[in-house]
């Protein structure tokens, strides 16, 4: 997967966010979201909100929904654990939540510290009542993000698209 490929699917996801009238984009950065975050920051249709921890984003987007805005939360899988208690908010209130999660800790992971969260990301989200949509082919990403957002905003439901390291490439710290 080259930077050009990542820029291509990031552009496709950005178009889907526009199509679904997403206005607030909350994020804790990840290298896999680099291009998408840049597109959202430049966007005149969106407000980009960098967070200090991912759970802030869950609460932020609940407030956004109360006020009539749609949002998405961008993060890497290690941030999912930070969100667990806060996920009770969209669940109890039946509010939409869209999480786009770039995976770490999968096959080929260089950093063993990423494995405990990475290996349990989907299980934890499912336990917390979030519908998961794993994707491991870049060609399917646009379609899956589209159907996940439809599910979230029409449900309303909490959903997470899990973007595999197969799509992102493996970070190896130059080794």
């Amino acid at each position: 997967m080259t930077q050009t490929d990542i820029a291509t699917w990031s552009g496709e996801i950005y178009q889907k966010l526009l199509r679904h009238r997403v206005r607030q984009v909350a994020y804790v950065p990840d290298a896999g979201h680099l291009h998408l975050i840049e597109r959202c920051i430049e966007s005149r249709e969106m407000v980009s909100v960098p967070l200090t921890t991912e759970e802030e984003g869950v609460a932020l987007l609940a407030g956004a929904w109360l006020g009539g805005d749609r949002g998405v939360l961008l993060m890497q899988s290690s941030g999912v654990g930070n969100c667990l208690n806060m996920l009770s908010l969209p669940r109890v209130c039946e509010m939409p939540l869209v999480m786009l999660v770039t995976m770490r800790g999968e096959c080929g992971e260089f950093n063993p510290w990423q494995i405990p969260m990475g290996r349990n990301t989907e299980k934890l989200l499912t336990t917390a009542g979030v519908l998961t949509f794993p994707v491991d082919e870049s060609g399917r990403l646009e379609e899956v993000v589209d159907s996940a957002m439809r599910k979230a905003f029409e449900g309303p439901s909490a959903v997470a698209v899990l973007i595999s390291q197969r799509i992102l490439g493996v970070k190896n710290f130059g080794k």
């Binding site: 967070l51 802030e56 932020l60 609940a62 407030g63 956004a64 109360l66 006020g67 805005d69």
Partner: peptide, 8 residues
């Protein structure tokens, strides 16, 4: 943060 999302 909920107040922030609402205010925005």
């Amino acid at each position: 943060p909920m107040g922030l999302g609402l205010a925005l």
